[in-house]
């Protein structure tokens, strides 16, 4: 399937292994990525905090660009925070025609216009709802047998439920668990799996921020997880990049590798761990993979 692809900023900045691994995984799942390279940052909620109309207009521009991609079935992102920020803007734009016209009048100079009703899905949602878990499982070449994986969802993709279309028929707040199972891994439940990683307050209250990251990582260690997997690069920054600092705040050794969702999928689909950028993480995923033999899970 062809999708208008919004990679976000951090996946091309501080977590380049995320964008890179998505590019490798997509063809294996018959996803054609048409990158929205003209679109700008979603604002991650911070621009909305600064000026709501500005955030709504910048995102309406991205939506309009996505609607121009010929033959694309929907828009796809690989960042929970992008999903949350975009869904919030889209909720307002779709709810009120007068407001939508007002925002579109600002876009008119560029000849762009957003039409109500764009479908925008995180890669996680697309995996379950468009590709399907059975089809995904059928493509697994290197099952994640014996790999104990803790899902870390990130706030923006699980709350608020109504805005994100989470209900009994679309239990999107459980999809990560299902994907791990479909890839042959074992789901490890732990207290922090749907809590906040702390990233949004890293510059405002560093200690509280790192305490959040450290506690969730510690909970996962206590539940004997081999690694975590997350669909959010910002969570990845606080959980992986900041892990050495989080260890100091919570006063314990953590050594918990954190994988991006496309990396975990890529491993199971048989891709080379180095190509997936697994060597790029601050916490080495030695408990995930034996580098000499590329055997997943056996190293643990």
């Amino acid at each position: 399937m062809k999708v208008a692809y919004w990679p976000g900023c951090v996946s091309r900045g501080f977590t380049p292994e995320l964008h890179g691994s998505m590019a490798l995984v997509a063809p294996l799942l018959d996803i054609e990525l048409v990158e929205l390279d003209r679109a700008c940052c979603t604002g991650a909620g911070v621009i909305a905090e600064h000026n709501q109309e500005l955030a709504d207009t910048l995102n309406a521009r991205t939506f309009a660009l996505a609607q121009q991609v010929q033959g694309a079935e929907l828009m796809m992102n690989i960042c929970s925070t992008c999903q949350g920020a975009q869904s919030e803007c889209q909720e307002r734009l779709d709810a009120n025609a007068e407001y939508r016209d007002h925002v579109n009048s600002t876009l008119a100079g560029e000849g762009l216009s957003y039409e109500k009703g764009l479908t925008n899905k995180n890669f996680l949602w697309l995996l379950v709802e468009e590709i399907g878990l059975d089809a995904l499982a059928a493509r697994v070449k290197r099952p994640l047998t014996n790999l104990r994986v803790g899902p870390f969802y990130g706030c923006y993709i699980v709350r608020p439920r109504r805005r994100l279309g989470i209900d009994a028929e679309h239990p999107r707040d459980h999809y990560l668990d299902r994907v791990i199972e479909a890839l042959g891994g074992t789901v490890i439940e732990y207290a922090g799996m749907r809590k906040c990683c702390g990233f949004p307050i890293i510059t405002m209250n560093k200690e509280a921020s790192l305490k959040q990251a450290g506690r969730h990582l510690g909970d996962a260690v206590d539940a004997a997880a081999d690694c975590l997997v997350t669909p959010c690069p910002l969570c990845h920054l606080n959980l992986d990049l900041q892990q050495p600092l989080a260890e100091k705040v919570v006063g314990r050794q953590l050594d918990m590798p954190v994988l991006h969702l496309p990396q975990l999928v890529g491993l199971a689909l048989g891709l080379d761990p180095k190509e997936l950028g697994l060597n790029r993480h601050v916490v080495r995923p030695t408990s995930v993979i034996d580098w000499s033999s590329s055997v997943v899970g056996a190293a643990a």
């Binding site: 949350g84 709350r159 608020p160 906040c196 949004p200 405002m204 209250n205 921020s209």
Partner: peptide, 11 residues
């Protein structure tokens, strides 16, 4: 500025 923007209260 101590709010982490987690949407828990909204929910």
């Amino acid at each position: 500025f101590d709010c982490t923007h987690c949407f828990k209260c909204v929910e």
